[in-house]
Design a protein around this nucleic acid. Sequence first.
RNA 1: GUGAUUGUAGCUCAGCUGGUUAGAGCACUGGUUUGUGGUACCGGGGGUCGUGGGUUCGAGUCCCAUCAGUCACCCCA
Length: 437
Amino acid sequence: MSNTKPSIPKGMRDFTSEVMFRRNYIFETVKSAFECYGYAPIETPAMENVKTLTGKYGDEGDRLIFKVLNSGDYLSKANLDENTDSKSLTKQIVEKALRFDLTVPFARFVVQNRNDITFPFKRYQMQNVWRADRPQKGRYREFYQCDADVIGTESLICEVELVQLYDDVFTKLNIPNVDICINNRKVLSGMVELMGATDLFDQIVITLDKLDKIGIDKVKEEMESNGVKKEALSILDTFLNTKNVGDLFSLLENSLIGKKGLEELKFVIDNVTKLGLQSANLVFDITLARGLNYYTGCILEVKANDVQIGSIGGGGRYDDLTSNFGLKDVSGVGVSFGIDRIYLVMEELALFPDNIDVSTKVMFANFGDDEAAFCLPLLKQLRAAGISSELYPTSTKMKKQMTYANNKGVQFVIMVGEDEMESGILSIKNMESGEQR
RNA sequence: GUGAUUGUAGCUCAGCUGGUUAGAGCACUGGUUUGUGGUACCGGGGGUCGUGGGUUCGAGUCCCAUCAGUCACCCCA
């Protein structure tokens, strides 16, 4: 057999222990916040049926779904003729796909288990998802999402709580200068309605989302080339120049859906303002749109302003996701934490506490079989007391054992040799100070 | 799908306008110290220079192709 160079697929990663200690620190923080707000854990499988996933994320999203080839002689069951192309072939030889996010599988879960669930249902989920994207900074083909969703209620109190939840987590993680951007898809619908371009909604909204990146002129250019009329663009201008939510009411007076969206927006903002946030800022941003097109109401996106990276979290309300699976009129709302990006932000700003990567507190040096046997009961006692400890497995040179302890960040090394066994008094060395007794 | 950029030891890189046995630091390992790490000193192993072709007396260095990584656009966490 030939030696293959060890490698892993594009956009996927190994995590070393050092990295895992830090990742777990983030996971734990998020998890305890979720539980503190009354969310309960669930998990769903890595793969879903392709049909469950397709059509929920837009055309672009569908292309980025990782599909899993059927097992066995799949080609013999396929129908091949001269019209067969990749797309029609894929349909015949693929029936499973890796999950693309946690929200759609969750909607499926809710419908499938509806008889066992008490509504409103609050769950959290922290699992990996896969996207066949081109990797770059803060963007991988396998990454983790931590989602909290509540489904089965239209109450806007949920939105208010989710904003607080974001604030709680980022405050606990000590990430400064966090903006929680908020908008409402209904407000955008109202605006597009006034522009007389309802059929171009998706296009307009995607273009609008780029405003802070490419500037107003380019946005208008792109919209015009997509068929938006000049008059419509001046309406857009009025909206963009209105910073205050209250002032939008007069603009959207004639749009039923727009007014509804504004009322929702106002409720959330007012209540959050009343309760106050610890460290994050709630920012109304009319240009916030979000690509995933299952959102229907309030939408949220979180940015860490001190680091150049995409959003570190996002979410919103979806009114109709479960109807795809045959359960109508169930509204849900949720948020997602992008923990890989949060990791990068914390790394860049050096926000990780330095005492989170210690595993073994006490190590027994190994001087030989008899000495090792003497240590084992002591080890048992330490462990029973909840002190993480280990015995170096072989009696190699002291230098090597000490180096091992040092690199692993062990705090104390206990020497048990002949003298100690006889006297019963052990030598303990503090690895930090070098002191020994 | 589009564009830019990089590929030399396990890791981070140096290698000038092509010139003989390809270097450093870190890591690993042996010793100074037969029971002591993190600091010191001495030694050792490890590379067909991403791959394939071409130019040349001679290619890590120049040209072409190909593969892989990284970054940006699209889109997104």
